[in-house]
Design a protein around this nucleic acid. Sequence first.
DNA 1: GATGAATGAGTTTTCATTCAT
DNA 2: TATGAATGAAAACTCATTCAT
Lengths: 232, 232, 232, 232
Amino acid sequence: MGLAERRAREKRQRREDILDAAKKIFSAKGFHGATVEEIAGEAELSPATLYLYFANKWELYASLNLRMLEFLCERIERVDREDGLDPLQKVRQMAEAMYDVYCFDPDILTNVLRMQASPYLEQLPDKMRDQVNAKVAQALRAFAKIFQKGVEQGYFPDFPPMALSDIIWSVFTGLVLLERSKNLFDSQKDYLKPTLFLAIEIMAQGMSSQGMRDYTQGLADHGPEHSPPKAT
Amino acid sequence: MGLAERRAREKRQRREDILDAAKKIFSAKGFHGATVEEIAGEAELSPATLYLYFANKWELYASLNLRMLEFLCERIERVDREDGLDPLQKVRQMAEAMYDVYCFDPDILTNVLRMQASPYLEQLPDKMRDQVNAKVAQALRAFAKIFQKGVEQGYFPDFPPMALSDIIWSVFTGLVLLERSKNLFDSQKDYLKPTLFLAIEIMAQGMSSQGMRDYTQGLADHGPEHSPPKAT
Amino acid sequence: MGLAERRAREKRQRREDILDAAKKIFSAKGFHGATVEEIAGEAELSPATLYLYFANKWELYASLNLRMLEFLCERIERVDREDGLDPLQKVRQMAEAMYDVYCFDPDILTNVLRMQASPYLEQLPDKMRDQVNAKVAQALRAFAKIFQKGVEQGYFPDFPPMALSDIIWSVFTGLVLLERSKNLFDSQKDYLKPTLFLAIEIMAQGMSSQGMRDYTQGLADHGPEHSPPKAT
Amino acid sequence: MGLAERRAREKRQRREDILDAAKKIFSAKGFHGATVEEIAGEAELSPATLYLYFANKWELYASLNLRMLEFLCERIERVDREDGLDPLQKVRQMAEAMYDVYCFDPDILTNVLRMQASPYLEQLPDKMRDQVNAKVAQALRAFAKIFQKGVEQGYFPDFPPMALSDIIWSVFTGLVLLERSKNLFDSQKDYLKPTLFLAIEIMAQGMSSQGMRDYTQGLADHGPEHSPPKAT
DNA sequence: GATGAATGAGTTTTCATTCAT
DNA sequence: TATGAATGAAAACTCATTCAT
């Protein structure tokens, strides 16, 4: 019936509203620093109402991160699936994808960072934690796959693709943190995008340069000191 | 007098003990998650005693970060002062320096990251905040100076040195976060060092490659879309 | 009209359903421990609907106890009215009656007990409280009346009949509590009945024994130290 | 040292104060009905301070009941150990003991009753629950032992001693409940003692009467319908 | 008449901080 | 100087009750 349907949609909308409010507050203050009351206030609800939609603070937090990770995975995997692009172009596309994710949800990314950087995960109910971990692993694997092809096709020297994808990921997350901190000093906006693209360009050039090939060769002669992490 | 001196030294030592304990707990649980009682316990003191050495939890936290930033600055500036190294070598040295900092204090770095990623700074007493901000800026300037010379001497294309140093900084901090999160899955150690050096090498190669020069030239022709952040 | 009548009957039925559900939950968890939502769920209703039938949680609780007390009174009074039984037989019948009440509603009795053992009564709206109090008094008076006749007819020594009835009542309620607690240890069932009858038999024998007569006489000589409670 | 000793004594005293306050409030309102704030207020402390002495509300409640049960056990067992008393005298002594317990702590007994009459026990931390259960069982066994001897020495007919002790226990607890409820109507005091003694006398007479012996014999001929509970 | 959704008023519990000793 | 004890303020979470539909 129309009524039940409307109800369901409204309910879903409320859930989203709460997630948006939570995103804002958690991003600003971290998990412990944010209070349920504040989040509820931001969503223009009473705290009690919030508990009708989420069992507790933890579940709210995890739902938030999950939403973001899903969006990220989807975008990365789409780049991998795209036809007619050489690996270098795909790496550039990846930067675009990451930036899009950031634009879609600039705050929540720092939440994921914080989550990864802390023992919060251990406190999550098992099911949620597994979901979050799986999503992070999935995103990193999607990353690695792009480099994998680049190595196979001879665009990049023979380096563990996981390491390469980790580096790109690191540039990105590191830049996000940096931009946040810079915003505290001056309030210069739109710093992330050009800097991210510059970084990607530098790395793309570096990876495909002759010097890099020589470096790789040197390592191969003396034995690798780099062991790639196993994806989980 | 000898006595007064000894007293002063003992006091300083106690302070250091507390900072060490605080480092451990804050790193593990974040600012809000850590309790003063826990920190005092780790330092084998009563909470009340802790307050004889630090005015409050915030000041303790900030002192911690300040200690770390000072160490970092010192190491970076030393690289800059060193003679007989070309810019590329200095960039590599910088990676060594950063890794040393990480080894000296693997936990505290995540604290600085967390601090930068949040509005904690705003809650600090004015004087402390200024000190922390100044130190961060100083570290980033020291970074930039190295690239500045590289650009001046024609090693690197004509890019805002601040952007270059930000990128290196980002790789590093991003990798630290990543390593932490990976440690949650498997417990593979010593991933940071080789990956960091690989990243630096790739970037060094990229920056000094002909392709990068062409890229820069292209940007210059179409007008720069990148405006460097002003250090504060 | 038939319609209005059906409506009324349905309404009464709903009320009973709710009372049954409430009985179950209150018995298991006590007044404060039970939640309206849980009771409504047990009755397969929404909490809001429950409030159409009872003004609030208190009234629901009191209605429950009232229902039980009415049933108890009715049974006791019937024993009193029965012809052709000597007082000893009536005491035995009373035990049967009490046991029937227990069987009719094993849970609710503990609710009355709990209610009697606490200041819940004071919080009831005046009208309800008066009703509950009146019913309890009525039950105890019906009890006492049986002993009254036993004393008048010389079956029992000259003791305050109220005290005698109080003792029987106490044995019963005490045994109910005890059975409940024993069920927590082992799950032995049907302990109450034989033990109750044994107790009644012992007391009946005791009251009609010569020893008791002597004991009573002794008290009378030294002045009574027992003053019966005034029924209200 | 004297200081440490004084500290320890003061601390123990505070604990007792809190237990006394808790006794009062729990008795009046039950577990769920009582609030920590109220208990703390009664003890003239802040709620936070209360948590320095007890981990949570449950532990406080359980400690209370344990204290009471220990006192009760001790008194009963002392009666059993006493020399030169025949079983009938011991039963009378037992009534004295129970009344003493009641005087020592008139409120807390209703707490134990409530606890036994509800599923609270299941929610206690395992260790505490075991302690409470063990104490209750111990008290009932001590009871039974007295009747055991009475049966062995031919004072009482051959009835399950556990059943006899359960009956006495029931009279007592039932009377306590009854007195409480009567206090709500009129505020007549000192009703419990004479009524309890009267009950005990009646039962003692009953058990040792010829009629009882006949009754027992009758049961024996037709097979026992009473199976004693196994103590745990 | 029935109910999904909302919430105000509590509840237990925690913790940074103070202070008498 | 050091600390055990105390607490105000706030946090997460619950629940009886209301009300628009």
